[in-house]
Design a protein around this nucleic acid. Sequence first.
DNA 1: AAAGCGGGGTT
DNA 2: AACCCAGCTTT
Length: 355
Amino acid sequence: MHKLTSSLNLQSANLQYFRSKILAWNRENNDRKMPWKGEKDPYKIWLSEIILQQTRVAQGLKYYNDFILNYPTISDLANAPDDEVFKKWEGLGYYNRCRNMIFTARYIRDELNCIFPITYDDILNLKGVGEYTAAAIASFAYNLPYAVVDGNVVRVISRFLALDKQLVTASDKRLYQEIANSFLSKQKAGEYNQAIMDFGATVCMPQNPTCGICPIKRKCKAYALDGIEKYPPKKKKLKLKKRTFHYVILQVGKSIYVRQRNAKDIWQSLYEPILIEQSSVPDWLKKHKAVSKKSQKLSHQQLDIRFYILNTPSEVPIDIDSYSKVSRKQLAQKAYPKSVYDFLQEFKYLELAKD
DNA sequence: AAAGCGGGGTT
DNA sequence: AACCCAGCTTT
């Protein structure tokens, strides 16, 4: 190939070594089992990949099983009400994924007659599907020769080549994609992509990789340099924005007031009680004691959350037109941020009142 | 190019 | 407390 290949010393002998060792490891030593493995239905592959974006397999597993059970085909998912789908996604995080998933299911139902796209470019055009996910679906479902570049692949390549780069800029992305393409087995694209990700997850792990049993350590440059832990370089940690939420549970009879979050902010599409966001306690709330306090750390924000229970609307001197009174039965069917869900659960708001 | 977007497991 | 996970979209 060209400059890139030679500067990184990617001779075909090394490419072949890497490729064949990874495939052999996969056949002989990879006992990782996941329900979507070997799956050929592009709908199920797509669903698993959306759920697994920035999410550990162990965490996504039960969500995948639940979605497949309730929505066995893409039309089942497309026909489901938004709130019902979000309730199943609740707790998984990055809720834009869920919104895009619903949009794409309906797009495929309405525009593609429920037929999942079959080319890489058409798959890539789906909302919520980027290069990684498109390559995963194209290779797993159709064995098309597109190399996946996810966190596992970046780590394995960075170490094998002692490549001192994170995946930050578009240039980094092109570099890793090109290297991954050259390593890819074009004939066994699906098998190879699955293999390298399993390898990264179970052998070449982020911390304490098991180099002793690694099938490619003989040519691994980071291993030779005794610098496995230096590759890939650490991401710079962003400092957390601090926010304080005062949630007022305004009870009227068996109902409380909630609304759906629609602003361009965290937790879009999820429901919440009456929110006052300010660092200090509002004067009118000072005579009430917070019945619960929670601290929640997001990837980019540190939330200090306090809950108050009030019983009459006149005690709440703010505009609550955007909220509606919702019964216990209806509350149980909506999706909430983790901290709000935990509160509602602890204080029995999600149980049906039996009287 | 950089920022925004969750929640959890592991060490 | 640090690190990072089968990343994508918007600004």
